[in-house]
Design a protein around this nucleic acid. Structure first.
Lengths: 214, 214
DNA sequence: CGATAATCTAGAACAAGTTTCAGACTTGAT
DNA sequence: ATCAAGTCTGAAACTTGTTCTAGATTATCG
């Protein structure tokens, strides 16, 4: 019978996955070392600096093992993003945004996240590029990131069950968030511009927010 | 003295570039063959199917020459997108959108463009993935695409000189456009969802459109 | 404890983007 | 027509993501 699980996958901690067989301690440790190395390398040179051989070496794991845990570089970086997002969500839960309106709170939340990314622009580059470059084979993981982001925004809005209209607004906000990050990361938009755009898109919330018409 | 131009670059037809030395006819023809081959290959397998060796062979050009014209695969695909965007803009000029409000016209324009992309989803995949994956070295070209897109949207709005507020709204619309395309292309959003999101974001125009308060 | 099946390791091998180089070919100017 | 400078070609080399293989290790079952 099998010794360790067949295919080490994501933590499955949050919502979603069909819970692949649990990892042994050593496997959990390996996974953690890999993600750590990934974030570390990304923190230096961004996407390009995350080289699979280096990640393997840094995390004391054979190349083949790395690929068993994360079937591609993009998978690895998206998983790294999931990891960081969890931190962010925890932080936000401790100090929720304080604005009066939902739009203000969402804008504040996004700006806080943005400032966090500004501290590690290279890491942001690696994660965001991976996220938007991901093809269908990474869909489940990218979707998980998307769900996590949606949760964070809905939390900021303070909503229980959003209307379809509001969900669309939230999706648009996420679109803007990702794409604005990209333009900032590639040097085509200033920080101020990103700020303005995030505030602009958040106005959509006021537009859909005050319930349909009951 | 030089025989042909030093660095064959983009058409520089539209606005923007400092007009690199003009290309000879044969060079223009090569450039065109390359772009054609690129679009053709992209039309089949999408981003991955555009392999530089194949593009070179298809367009009857040496690999080194291909790289002289387009310094990377991403450059090539972004140029391909510029090309397609021009077509689109021409088409739109012939049959402008007919909606009553600016928001309607923009939404109609985007939906028309979206339908055009649906006819060649693989080509869309290649172009959009390249666009969002582009790093700083491609900024000028990506910026050109962005300007072209902005022009198309402003055209649809029928605006002469937009306010900063409106420009931000347009940027947000572009963000949504790109990011929504990505989610559709990677199979994480339905066509209907993209449609709704585009309509949602276009409402921002009504919010900023009817001049400040004058 | 021993058998067994899966995992992990080291390293070679392969694929596609990118770079490089020597030599043949064009071009524009004299 | 000839020359100089730059361009194009064909092919090899290099880089980094990905795959494959044979053998050493580890975990679980009996």
């Amino acid at each position: 019978m099998p010794a360790e699980a067949k295919a080490p996958a994501s933590t499955a901690r949050a919502a979603g996955q069909p819970a692949s067989p649990p990892l042994t301690e050593r496997q959990e440790a390996r996974r953690r070392r890999i993600l750590h190395a990934s974030a570390q390398l990304a923190g230096r040179g961004g996407f390009d600096a995350v080289q699979m051989r280096e990640v393997a070496e840094s995390s004391q794991v054979a190349l083949g093992t790395l690929y068993r845990y994360f079937p591609s570089k993009v998978h690895l970086l998206v998983a790294t993003m999931q990891d960081q997002l969890e931190h962010m969500h925890d932080t936000l839960r401790k100090k929720p945004p304080a604005g009066q309106t939902a739009a203000e709170r969402v804008a504040e939340t996004l700006m806080r996240a943005f400032r966090a990314l500004q501290r590690e622009p290279q890491l942001a580059d690696a994660m965001v590029r991976a996220l938007t470059f991901a093809d269908r084979s990474v869909s489940p993981e990218v979707d998980q990131v998307s769900r996590q982001t949606t949760t964070i925004i809905l939390d900021a809005m303070g909503l229980e069950d959003p209307t379809p209209d509001q969900l669309s607004a939230v999706r648009v906000i996420e679109h803007t968030w990702h794409s604005a990050l990209i333009t900032w990361l590639s040097g085509r938009a200033s920080i101020a511009q990103v700020k303005v755009d995030l505030e602009t898109v958040c106005r959509l919330i006021d537009l859909t927010g005050p319930r349909e018409r009951d």
